[in-house]
């Protein structure tokens, strides 16, 4: 079965044809895309989580 690469580089488009970045909060539109939308959303969520962790880490290091 297909294993998913990083999908966040894909050019996601709205129904009106405008490109958009996958938001970590997800959207109904992403759910409607199906497998790729769900996985991309989770990747975006994970990426945001990592970034948040890193940010917290940086803040901690600064405060230390």
């Amino acid at each position: 079965m297909e294993q998913f690469p990083n999908l966040l580089d894909l050019d996601f488009k709205t129904t009106t044809g405008e490109s958009f970045q996958v938001p970590p909060e997800g959207s109904l539109g992403l759910l409607a895309i199906g497998d790729i939308g769900v996985i991309a959303w989770r990747q975006a969520r994970e990426k945001a989580r990592q970034e948040k962790l890193e940010e917290i880490q940086r803040k901690r290091e600064k405060s230390d």
Binding site: M1, E2, L31, A32, I33, G34, D35, I36, G37, V38
Partner: peptide
Amino acid sequence: VASLHAAFTNIIRT
């Protein structure tokens, strides 16, 4: 609904 749709899109896509 989203769960079933995601599985199904994967099947007919791949």
